[in-house]
């Protein structure tokens, strides 16, 4: 299985940022097992890194690889759109 590389941009422990981390961790645990690399970037510390990646608001999740690159904004509570952005097929229910 290919490794999914992601960057999550957050703002310190602001509520949506904390929520986004929790939501993403749950999704990764369930759907990606160990096949992912996640870097969490605090834009209050490293605003220029976010700008370099074209990120203007947090929380934002950027999928770096495999291509196509994708971006999703918000606290990642909408699991379907996160799976879609990460290119993970939705489980049949």
């Amino acid at each position: 299985m290919t490794i999914v590389e992601m960057r999550l941009y957050i703002a310190n422990n602001a509520p949506n940022s904390v929520r986004a981390i929790a939501n993403l961790e749950a999704i990764c645990k369930e759907h990606l097992k160990d096949n992912f690399k996640l870097e969490i970037i605090d834009v209050l510390e490293y605003p220029l890194r976010a700008l370099a990646d074209g990120i203007l608001v947090t929380p934002s999740l950027a999928k770096m690889s495999p291509s196509p690159a994708a971006k999703i904004v918000g606290n990642l509570s909408d699991k379907r759109s996160v799976l879609h952005a990460l290119g993970i097929p939705e489980p049949v229910e």
Partner: peptide, 15 residues
Amino acid sequence: QVDAVIDPATGKAFL
């Protein structure tokens, strides 16, 4: 759902 916005002009994030 957003906590902070980054201003490219100043290169800084504000909450």
